[in-house]
Design a protein around this nucleic acid. Structure first.
Length: 477
DNA sequence: AAAAAAC
């Protein structure tokens, strides 16, 4: 069954704007939540990561705010600053006629500037709890007229550490407001707690889409006894050669240390965690989105909501503390109907954590063997061959023919071709010759880690339906 | 116990 946005009760204007943006069909969570939200009901919305939750609350919200009144009418709370920025941007993108003023407020940025902007009369504010409270206490933010309240990543917002601030903020809003809680995860205890803030809510739960189990391939590598994780990570990265990856660790310190190691090995990688300044954080996310950095080593600051287009890999260098966090972490990839790979590294003693995760996601996780040096070399040669075949059909090929003609005066064609391939191979694996990688992988072979070489993974399919999905500029959860 | 979130 397909629905149009019109069928959801959105205005003709809005539907027309959505079509101009290329959005024709609502995702399941949008199809189910939007009508309830338009009818004024409180909603608890639960749907998988990357399936359009932001638009599910943003569309009805934007339609019901009165653009003629220059007063704050809607507040959205998020658990991280970057998420506030992202949700704000997504809402501005959907506010196609620019009739509403939408502002993100969060810590680490000049509060004076945010206060000046607030004075100009924002109708929608997206913010993190600490800064929102600060602004309330300074008299710069008045929630008296807020009739729309959204908790994004609601279960996290109701967790210890956030709940007190969130409750204080909620108490500053009118009781007759409309409230929506959205998240991909909602533990029963949190769901119970949530009802305390909602008025006879409708619960909208979207079951896993049919493509869901295959959308993200999950794989587990058991780190051999006596090995460090960083030693196990090297051959996996060599084998996978992720185009873009989020590598999750548990602490800021480990993030910094692992980043240092990977940088020393010549990789394009940077760290992302709460020890950085706000401008460092924002700059990094921008560079990552623009693919100026291939890999990011992050704490759980990046676990939720963050939407980076074409993220191919999520790597759990260390397993998260909560099963919910696992679900959110791997959900950074495989977004908007694309494929993704989620890899977890576990010590033998951590296998019990794995079983908790398996129970929660109701899936068995596949174990993989750490690739040997020979398998990695074979994979590199496969890639090289594929690249050569691509190059043969390229238009630029002809421009290299004169050089070949010149070289044939001194060498035969096979020798020239082999030399060119050798150069390409060395370009492709600059760290290949490095001593530490060499010895570690030799060590792997001594441990008898062998498995058949796997076929390279196909690129994610480009033939997807156009729906309102996360992209670099708009996000859904 | 750690991470996130205000100055």
């Amino acid at each position: 069954m397909t629905l149009s946005f019109t069928g959801l009760g959105l205005s003709a204007d809005k539907v027309h704007h959505l079509e101009k943006l290329g959005f024709r069909e609502p995702t399941p969570i949008q199809a189910q939540a939007v009508p309830h939200l338009l009818s004024g009901r409180d909603v608890v919305g639960q749907a998988q990561t990357g399936t359009g939750k932001t638009a599910a609350f943003a569309l009805p919200l934007l339609e019901q705010i009165d653009p003629r009144i220059p007063v704050l009418q809607s507040l959205i709370l998020t658990p991280t600053r970057e998420l506030a920025i992202q949700v704000c941007q997504a809402m501005r993108d959907l506010n196609t006629d620019r009739s509403l003023k939408i502002l993100a407020v969060y810590g680490g940025q000049s509060i004076d500037q945010q206060m000046r902007r607030l004075r100009r009369g924002s109708q929608v504010v997206v913010g993190t709890p600490g800064r929102v409270l600060d602004l309330i206490n300074r008299g710069a933010l008045n929630l008296d007229q807020v009739n729309w309240l959204v908790l994004d990543e609601a279960d996290e917002m109701l967790n210890m550490g956030f709940i007190q601030d969130v409750e204080t903020i909620l108490n500053c809003t009118p009781a007759e407001r409309q409230t929506a809680f959205f998240s991909a995860t909602m533990a029963p205890t949190i769901r119970e707690l949530a009802t305390k803030f909602l008025r006879s809510p409708v619960t909208v739960t979207v079951e896993a889409a049919k493509s869901a189990p295959t959308r993200i391939e999950q794989r587990v590598y058991v780190v051999p006894r006596g090995w460090s994780k960083s030693r196990a990570l090297q051959p996996i990265l060599e084998m996978e050669n992720p185009e873009s990856a989020l590598i999750f660790v548990r602490t800021r310190r480990t993030a910094a240390e692992l980043t240092r190691q990977l940088q020393a090995a010549g990789h394009s990688v940077d760290e992302y965690h709460g020890d950085l300044t706000q401008s460092q954080r924002e700059r990094l996310i921008l560079r990552f989105r623009q693919q100026q950095v291939r890999w990011v080593v992050a704490t759980d600051i990046a676990a939720r909501g963050l939407d980076v287009d074409n993220l191919t890999h999520v790597i759990n260098y260390e397993l998260p503390d909560s099963v919910e966090s696992y679900v959110h972490r791997i959900g950074r990839t495989g977004r908007a109907g694309k494929e993704g790979m989620a890899i977890s590294l576990v010590h033998p003693l951590e296998k019990y954590k794995l079983r908790q995760i398996e129970r929660h996601i109701q899936q068995k996780l596949a174990f993989a063997k750490i690739p040997t040096r020979a398998e990695i070399a074979a994979r590199h040669l496969e890639r090289l061959q594929a690249q050569v075949e691509d190059a043969i059909t390229s238009e630029r090929l002809a421009s290299f023919l004169p050089i070949v003609s010149q070289l044939t005066e001194s060498y035969d064609l096979r020798t020239i071709a082999a030399a060119a391939l050798q150069m390409a191979y060395d370009q492709m694996s600059p760290s290949w010759q490095r001593h530490e990688i060499h010895t570690e992988i030799t060590e792997t072979e001594r441990h008898g880690q062998r498995s058949p070489s796997k076929q390279g993974r196909g690129k994610s399919s480009s033939k997807q339906r156009r729906t309102i999905q996360p992209s670099a500029s708009s996000s859904q959860d």
